[in-house]
Design a protein around this nucleic acid. Structure first.
Lengths: 162, 162
DNA sequence: TATTGTTATACTCTATAACTATA
DNA sequence: TATAGTTATAGAGTATAACAATA
């Protein structure tokens, strides 16, 4: 994902003055989108620099499967807030990379019991280290208290928007 | 986009206990993504309820064009942080809806001067009202001071992630 | 040569609808 | 009947590469 324009460029030209953003800077939704985009970019850069490839969504999925081994695709889709059909190609890819497996549930023939492979578990440990480094970087401009406050306020907004 | 699972459901069943999310709740990136998703859903619902169709990105684009009439597609793409080729189909759609026009720049034959149509300007006024209602709703769980703090912290994070 | 806008192409995320196997 | 997973399909957002027009 793209970084935002850094404003005035350092070349010789008239340097295309910053655009007028009107009311946008006062909108929480706008701040949320722009910050999310920058954070996503840092996440991608962190993983690319380490020679790994993973999206934030894939990381969240792997953590969920790791901590809830045996869960069904429906349960996972619900936890992720996506449709069950959306989940299929995502699992295909992760399974294709050897990170997780779909096993037949012994108790309900309709469902798959999801689990990380040993390779997936090892990879997740590496990924978690990278995520911690990424988190430290994006929070580097905030104090510990500010970081905690930010997460709390975000959660408050999310919880009230159900 | 989809609302997250509301946790324990209100039906009669065993009610599939909440999943273990491991370290995810302590991650700023995770909170950001989930909150953004909920806020996006509220934005969409607000517009749908009013019989309008617009995404947050389209709203931001229209505001930028409104406040910077005559700007080029390159300048707009840079301001939005997207590739110029990505912008083309987005402008096609908005132009197809009669909200904006591409005019030939008189000074530089390579560029298009973008501007809202009268219809687009009127629509933007309606949209802005809806956005204000949406913003009030998503901030309803926060005090005025908290809302200001949230936006400030988000901006701090974004500005440091350039 | 360099820049702007466009097209062609390719992924990914997202959804709805319909199919299948199972319950 | 109802549920789980899959497939088919479609739309939006994102990108890179190549091309035409213009500078």
């Amino acid at each position: 994902m793209p970084a935002e324009d850094p404003g005035t460029k350092a070349d010789g030209k008239p340097a295309a003055r910053d655009l007028d953003r009107g009311l946008l800077p006062s909108l929480m939704g706008y701040a949320l989108r722009r910050t999310q985009s920058a954070v996503f970019a840092d996440f991608a850069a962190t993983f690319a620099a380490a020679g790994e490839a993973l999206t934030p969504g894939e990381f969240g999925l792997l953590v969920l499967v790791d901590r809830n081994a045996g869960l069904s695709q429906m349960a996972l889709a619900r936890a992720l807030g996506i449709d069950r059909s959306t989940l299929v190609p995502i699992l295909d890819r992760l399974q294709g990379r050897g990170l997780l497996v779909r096993r037949r549930s012994p108790t309900d023939g309709r469902t798959h019991a999801l689990a990380l492979t040993p390779v997936g578990a090892k990879a997740l440990a590496r990924f978690a280290k990278l995520v911690r480094a990424h988190e430290a970087r994006i929070a580097s401009a905030l104090s510990t208290a500010e970081t905690r406050t930010l997460i709390e306020l975000l959660e408050k907004v999310r919880a009230s928007s159900l």
